[in-house]
Amino acid sequence: MNWYILINIILPFVLAPFLFGVINRTKAFFAGRRGQPLLQLYYDLFKLFRKGSVYSVTTTWIFRIAPFAVFSSIVCVILIMPCGALVSPIGFRGDILLFIYFLAMARFFTVAAALDTGSSFEGMGASREVQFAALTEPAFILCMAALACETHSFSLSTIFSRLSFASWSGEGAVLLLVAVSLMIVLLAENSRVPVDDPNTHLELTMIHEVMVLDYSGPDLGFILYGAALKLWIIGSLVVGVALPVNTGNFFLDRFIFLGGMVLLAVIIGIIESVMARFRFLKIPQVLILASALSILALILQVRF
């Protein structure tokens, strides 16, 4: 194992909260405001980790372990995620399914803890989260299957090191479909605007935010940090497909990858600024369309 493989782990942990800053700044720019500092999430996390937690008396141990379970399953994903074309520290055959199920486990604990609080409000959020997750997961898995067929490998690291601009000129249609589908998955999984609004606290329309209402202090910090890392994880998939740079120069490659991530954050900010949230009935349709895109990609890939 080379020393530079560690950058796979260091980059997300250090830079993931920065993406949120970029998204917020883009939204502020479109709204004509100056917006919060780029490093706001770092300050928030720092503040939260110094505080103490308050627990409701109706909650049980599930509520207390959930933030750590969520965070540790996301850390497990970080360990197997390649950073662009850079091979990940622990990559193996079949990790393209494992990482999706680690994310599902994180979701399971969030939902279980939300139900544990006994609040009907959080139960509603949990129900919606699970409903949409059931529709995003097929799209996610089929995207991964299309990529696996494209590169003839079942490991994330090899998939992303085998993708290159040559594959875009050969199989542009497939990669475009996968990229668009992954983008919809990204917005749905991270509860960004067309699916869910991350800024509406205490509104009946929100999905993800409602489930973490009862957390405070370090627990909330872990949840926020976990959310930032999750955005980084799925974002790095999108960037890996859309911008498969493999020049061989280590620093140039990482630099382009980071540039791609910042660009992605700007794009998410633009989407959030120009689009309204979809109606609830519309969301399943969009998610099924994402599955349809990935099915089409898979068919094109398998058959031709």
């Binding site: 399943p284 349709q285 369309l289 349809a292 099915i295 089409l296 068919i299 058959r303």
Partner: peptide
Amino acid sequence: GYTASIFIGIAALVISFWIST
């Protein structure tokens, strides 16, 4: 309904690829 229509669309997609073979 529209959601069911998309499902049927996906089925039609698969069927048309099969027919074309």
